[in-house]
Design a protein around this nucleic acid. Structure first.
Lengths: 122, 122, 122, 122
DNA sequence: GTGGTCTAGACCACC
DNA sequence: GTGGTCTAGACCACT
């Protein structure tokens, strides 16, 4: 995982987003035990408090669960994980398109821009 | 213009983005005189200082120009305005796609999501 | 005269400086009649009030004199004009060197920078 | 640092220039932590907001970096700092010489004035 | 009447 | 405790 943060958003949110991402894309598998807060914190080079907050954020969404005295585990509710991914796709797509339409681009232009980006990395 | 702000980002940035948008999409035309800081502030329901900061932000990008003792004007550099729009489209598209790929969606899924959204409002 | 103004200083001061300059360097000769405020204003593309203020500024230093019902004339006090030039040279040199020393450049570096600039246009 | 401000320029610009100067001349070293906004503000006898604006100005040029919740640090990019110094020297020299030539002084006169000033403090 | 600057003081997010 | 944002209100320079 590449832990480089931008300065315009809270670090803990960026961490939460990245870990969530890793769960959704399967890098951390359902039911798998996660590193400790301290390990995560060292790895990311942030204060343990910050990491704690990020994990609490994810837990609150149900993606991870804390077993006291044991550690944190990815949920084994595969449906929830998939749901989370779909939600993000849907939400991000909606925001993206709305913003571009507001800028005055028409549907064809947006479609073309997406197309170009998707194929250029080929 | 709809001046409703979300709480998770600085208001002055949201204002700057909205006014920039209005310039890019042609709502404010090149060379046109803008409302005064105070008018804008009242309209948006914010403090004149906040509005001033937003406008300074836009000016710093070259989209508007200040004539002291007179008022603020949209730049008449049409190229710059178009450029700004293209930049935003390109940047937003890149971020959107990168984020979705990171979530584990493949190109087909992304394309389909965009397609669906674009045609559904039809 | 090239009337292009920077935005970070009052326009009337920039105008005053330019006209003063033209008197010091002999472009307007001692005793010569100057254009009217209105002519000057049109030429420079500014409000007559602004030009008026600039000329008042110069007059207050004694470089020009107003003869009511007639017009404005450059002073015929050649000594004063020369003095004004020397003052500016001295003042500007002092400010320039003080600022550069404060930035940490030593005398040799400053001298070299001046030398280079003076000879490069050759 | 001597915090005495002239009235003809915005205070925040004067502050920014002075702090920039202190970074360029090595008074604040690369990577060093700067005083807090409030400390700086008290020291200079200005409102914290004014100081904040000055620091934001410097940050925008890349000379300092903000670590949120922690403090501000001088950049450790020594090249950038040196560059900034050179830029200022070059810019100031150019402006100085251009202005003096416009006043009608020839190269020899300018050179002599600089020379005199540089050696007189000896 | 325009924009620009400054002060004072409050509140919040973040580490 | 750190920086960031916002409000309120005043004053000034400029056109």
């Amino acid at each position: 995982m590449n832990w480089n943060f931008s300065e315009d958003r809270p670090i803990f949110l960026q961490i939460a987003a990245q870990i969530t991402q890793s769960i959704v894309n399967g890098q951390y598998r359902p039911g798998e035990k996660l590193p400790t807060v301290r390990e995560f914190a060292i790895q990311a080079g942030v204060n343990p408090n910050t990491m704690q907050r990020a994990l609490a954020d994810i837990e609150q969404k149900g993606l991870i669960q804390t077993r006291r005295g044991d550690g944190r585990y990815v949920t084994d509710d595969i449906g929830l994980i998939k749901q989370m991914g779909s939600d993000r796709l849907s939400l991000a797509t909606g925001e993206f398109i709305t913003a571009m339409l507001a800028l005055g681009f028409d549907k064809a232009a947006i479609q073309k821009a997406v197309q170009t980006r998707l194929t250029e990395g080929k």
